[in-house]
Design a protein around this nucleic acid. Structure first.
Length: 695
DNA sequence: GTGGATGAG
DNA sequence: CGCTCATCCAC
């Protein structure tokens, strides 16, 4: 708040008095540093970013020398390219063939995969050809990410001083303020003394040094009016110490795990992040307060966090420029008028180097997702079900790593996302509590959700499917019996946890992002968002944004005709799962042969399909019929809604109460409900079973 | 709380 | 590109 004013005012005891000059900073501001107050003018934030992370992971795992050109492959594309390979002009998303043309010695490692019918993920020979039966697995990188995070934390002081935010799998933010405060007091005893007259608004003495040793850091040039001859103030010292800390951390990570990373050190998250990307690999960049404007003016504002998307595009078109320098000439009022008050003022301060968002000391994930794009699309519930089983195995194993089996954490909801053409839909239900979380439990819920998608209509062909769990709770017991209901919800959260949330609650997260109430305007094209509240007059279903993979198939907002159309399709689907519903006429490889591991198993005869169904398929096969029956039933209800009131029992949404699992009336066969099939899941450390067999 | 959407890596 | 993760908003 008012701290920025005193920050700019000339010190009370200035040179004019002939006495020793004093710092621009006050004792109070020094004290704020200890609390990691976001508005402290001495604040120091760092961003650390692993260099070509996935590529480094593979290099370390395989013991490949770091100078070797190395890329990580996912199907026919590259998802990570190390710096030696980049020197050959190899980039992300370059087709494999072109990459080899540019560098015949390139080492290409395919990502690990989950494969249908296999018990666990693995690095496999020729994985790229199994795109139809496998999904990629990022577990190896998560594991390495964890190790690195632990190493970084080890290199820092313990808990309250240390503030680490895991920003992604390969990035962290550090708030170094409190640690730097401690180091300042230690190194400069004169700072320990009480303020003159015990007045905290008194300015600090100047630092004793006149020339700072900036080591080998990439030091950003100063702003125009500044010169290197100017005496350093405490903010320069603080940044220098921050730079030392980051260098030590980087050295520790390399010494222990052999990963290189780049760093940015500055007064806030935005600048630190910009800094870490400034010079790579294996380098760090320091942006002193007095160099901020110089540094920033060299960037396009679309490089700034939150301006890389539609908002940034909007600003570009509004002001016909993408340069920060140009935008600096636009007045606050003008920005507000064009973008709305909040977004306007956010942008105004952001391009001036201001960002008071907090480093959120959080390293635990809040949700996890397992997904797959289908090429070609899949067309039956059974196919979807097989993928769901893989998703569940993936997610469950990650839940185990989160400590669900020890009741450390537990997800509250499960979510399915489904895509057909341009249309995406999602459904979610609470995960039934009370029981120990298990693959069966998740798989059952997932199938229920899928059935809901199916009965909603227009489910096929499905081009993308994903399953996620979220709403993780701390320390919730999943055991049956007394503990199960005694320990629940917020009561179970550790004091530490709630304490943390209280002090760093999301409430006062100052301008974490552009807070605009952006209103969705359905004009279709690239600018789906306006910042003002103008409504689009046209527009219900213009061209949807093309994503390059799928062309528009049909209008999105349609009426029930499409619903029936799709239901009819579904209805014609034969039980063998071979019917082809795709407009393009492809047949999914998944639908034809049964995986080998199922062929030899016992099967049962499905009277509706008039064919043998392996026992391992029984649960989902029955679900298949179940969803089909539901669909038919709903369709009839629709049709006869006016005439008949008696027939449809309110079975319409039996799954909605996901908790009553196994209660559903099964149309077929004596087989128990899907969930009741006990699979002796011997989850022996790290290895997880995919099989969902009946005991 | 649910479902859709943006944004970032 | 394909896959994760987080957050926000309208309902």
């Amino acid at each position: 708040m008012s701290s920025s004013q005193s920050f700019l005012e000339s010190p009370p005891h200035s040179q004019a008095s002939g006495r020793r000059r004093r710092s621009r900073f006050t004792h109070k501001q020094l004290h704020q540093l200890a609390q990691s107050t976001p508005h402290s003018p001495l604040r120091c934030i760092a961003h650390i970013d692993l260099d070509a992370f996935y590529a480094q992971c593979e290099g370390v795992r395989l013991g490949i020398p770091p100078e070797t050109p190395l890329a990580v492959q996912q199907w026919q594309g590259l998802i990570a390219v190390n710096y030696p390979a980049r020197a050959f002009g190899i980039t992300r998303f370059l087709p494999l063939s072109e990459a080899y043309e540019k560098c015949p010695e390139l080492v290409c490692q395919h990502v690990a995969t989950w494969k249908e019918g296999e018990d666990s993920w693995a690095y496999r020979e020729g994985a790229a050809k199994d795109i139809a039966t496998s999904k990629v697995c990022l577990d190896p990188y998560r594991t390495e990410s964890r190790k690195i995070l632990a190493c970084i934390k080890d290199a820092l002081p313990p808990a309250p001083i240390q503030r680490v935010e895991k920003a992604s799998i390969d990035e962290v933010f550090l708030d170094l303020s409190a640690q730097i405060h401690a180091i300042l007091l230690e190194r400069y005893p004169e700072l320990n003394g009480p303020p003159p007259y015990d007045d905290p608004t008194e300015n600090l003495p100047m630092p004793p040094t006149t020339a700072l040793d900036w080591a080998t850091d990439a030091l950003v040039d100063l702003d125009g009016a500044e010169t290197e001859d100017d005496d350093p103030d405490w903010d320069d010292i603080a940044t220098l110490i921050g730079s030392e800390i980051v260098r030590d951390i980087r050295a520790a990570v390399y010494a222990k795990l052999k990963y290189t990373c780049s760093g940015g050190i500055s007064k806030n998250k935005m600048l630190a992040k910009l800094g870490s990307g400034h010079k790579k690999p294996n380098a760090q960049t320091v942006i002193r307060n007095r160099a901020v404007q110089q540094f920033l003016s060299g960037f396009k504002f679309t490089k700034i966090r939150n301006l890389g998307g539609k908002l940034g595009d909007e600003v570009v078109t509004r002001f016909a420029t993408d340069s920060i320098s140009d935008l600096l000439t636009v007045s606050l009022d003008h920005l507000k008028k064009a973008l709305g008050d909040e977004t306007g003022s956010w942008l105004h301060s952001t391009i001036r180097g201001e960002d008071y968002s907090e480093v959120n000391p959080r390293t635990q994930i809040k949700s996890m997702l397992s997904a797959k794009s289908f090429r070609p699309a899949i067309n039956t519930f059974e196919q979807a079900s097989r993928w769901l089983r893989i998703f569940v195995a993936d997610i469950f194993s990650r839940c185990v790593e989160e400590g669900v089996l020890e009741n450390k954490r537990r997800p509250r909801t499960i979510n399915i996302h489904h895509r057909q053409g341009q249309q995406t839909r999602s459904k979610q239900v609470p995960i039934p509590g009370g029981k120990q979380l298990s693959e069966e439990l998740l798989f059952d819920s997932a199938k229920n959700l899928m059935a809901q998608v199916v009965v909603d209509g227009r489910a096929w062909p499905c081009s993308n499917l994903s399953l996620s769990v979220g709403g993780f709770e701390e320390g919730v017991s999943g055991n049956m019996g007394i503990g199960g209901f005694l320990v629940r919800g917020t009561q179970a959260r550790s004091l530490l946890e709630s304490e943390r949330e209280r002090s760093h609650g999301e409430g006062e997260d100052d301008h974490e992002r552009p807070p605009a109430k952006r209103r969705k305007v359905d004009t279709g094209g690239i600018k789906g968002f306006l910042v003002t509240k103008e409504e689009s007059s046209k527009g219900e279903n213009g061209d949807q944004e093309h994503d390059g993979l799928f062309e528009a198939r049909e209008p999105i907002h349609d009426d029930d005709n499409d619903y029936y159309e799709d239901m009819n399709n579904f209805d014609e689907d034969t039980a063998t799962g071979e019917t082809n519903l795709s407009p393009a006429g492809q047949r999914s490889p998944l639908s034809t042969p049964l995986p080998k591991h199922q062929q030899s198993l016992d099967s049962y005869f499905c009277t509706r399909c008039k064919s043998d169904i392996p026992l391992t398929e029984q649960a989902e096969h029955e679900d298949f019929h179940y969803a089909k029956d539901l669909a038919k039933q709903l369709q009839e209800e629709e049709r006869d809604s006016t005439a008949r009131t008696s027939a449809p029992k309110a079975k319409a949404t039996p799954q909605a109460s996901g908790g009553g699992k196994g209660k559903r009336g099964r149309p077929v066969g004596g087989g128990g409900p899907a969930g009741s099939g006990k699979t002796g899941t011997g989850t022996e450390k790290g290895q997880r079973r995919l099989a969902f067999g009946k005991g």
